[in-house]
Computed example of a mutant assay.
Amino acid sequence: MCISSADYPASLERRKIYVALRDVAAEKQGMLRIADESGDDYLYPAALFRTIALPRSIKKAVLAP
């Protein structure tokens, strides 16, 4: 979930759930690969996000195409 969009107001919405795509190289540098509002994926500072646990039914709905 995004906790701050101050530096990226056109790309991210605060309090919105985003899907993070696995990118080991980016994670080593403190970044996350996020599918943002454009529908494309970009690197953002990991500090802008918090991992949240979702119930299975909600996770399924969030990840559905």
Rank of each mutant, 00 (worst) to 15 (best):
residue 2 C to I: 08
residue 2 C to H: 05
residue 2 C to K: 03
residue 4 S to P: 01
residue 5 S to Y: 01
residue 5 S to L: 00
residue 5 S to R: 08
residue 6 A to V: 08
residue 7 D to V: 06
residue 7 D to I: 07
residue 8 Y to G: 01
residue 8 Y to F: 15
residue 8 Y to Q: 03
residue 8 Y to D: 06
residue 9 P to E: 12
residue 10 A to W: 00
residue 10 A to E: 14
residue 11 S to W: 03
residue 11 S to I: 01
residue 13 E to C: 09
residue 14 R to M: 13
residue 16 K to H: 15
residue 17 I to H: 04
residue 18 Y to P: 08
residue 20 A to C: 14
residue 23 D to C: 13
residue 23 D to L: 05
residue 24 V to A: 10
residue 25 A to K: 11
residue 25 A to Y: 00
residue 26 A to I: 06
residue 26 A to W: 04
residue 26 A to H: 06
residue 27 E to M: 11
residue 28 K to Y: 03
residue 29 Q to N: 11
residue 29 Q to L: 06
residue 31 M to V: 00
residue 31 M to N: 10
residue 32 L to C: 05
residue 32 L to P: 01
residue 32 L to M: 13
residue 33 R to P: 03
residue 33 R to L: 13
residue 33 R to D: 06
residue 33 R to Q: 14
residue 34 I to P: 04
residue 34 I to Q: 07
residue 34 I to A: 10
residue 36 D to F: 02
residue 37 E to Q: 15
residue 37 E to R: 15
residue 38 S to K: 08
residue 39 G to A: 08
residue 39 G to S: 10
residue 39 G to K: 12
residue 40 D to A: 14
residue 41 D to M: 06
residue 41 D to G: 01
residue 41 D to I: 02
residue 42 Y to W: 11
residue 43 L to A: 05
residue 43 L to V: 02
residue 43 L to R: 07
residue 45 P to G: 03
residue 45 P to T: 08
residue 45 P to C: 06
residue 45 P to Y: 04
residue 46 A to G: 02
residue 47 A to I: 07
residue 47 A to R: 15
residue 47 A to T: 12
residue 47 A to Q: 13
residue 47 A to H: 10
residue 49 F to L: 07
residue 49 F to C: 03
residue 49 F to K: 07
residue 49 F to M: 09
residue 50 R to E: 14
residue 51 T to W: 05
residue 54 L to T: 05
residue 54 L to G: 03
residue 54 L to W: 04
residue 54 L to C: 11
residue 55 P to Q: 09
residue 55 P to Y: 07
residue 55 P to K: 12
residue 55 P to A: 09
residue 56 R to Y: 06
residue 56 R to A: 14
residue 56 R to D: 10
residue 57 S to K: 13
residue 57 S to H: 15
residue 58 I to Y: 07
residue 58 I to T: 11
residue 59 K to W: 13
residue 59 K to M: 10
residue 59 K to L: 13
residue 61 A to V: 05
residue 63 L to Q: 13
residue 64 A to C: 09
residue 64 A to I: 03
residue 64 A to D: 15
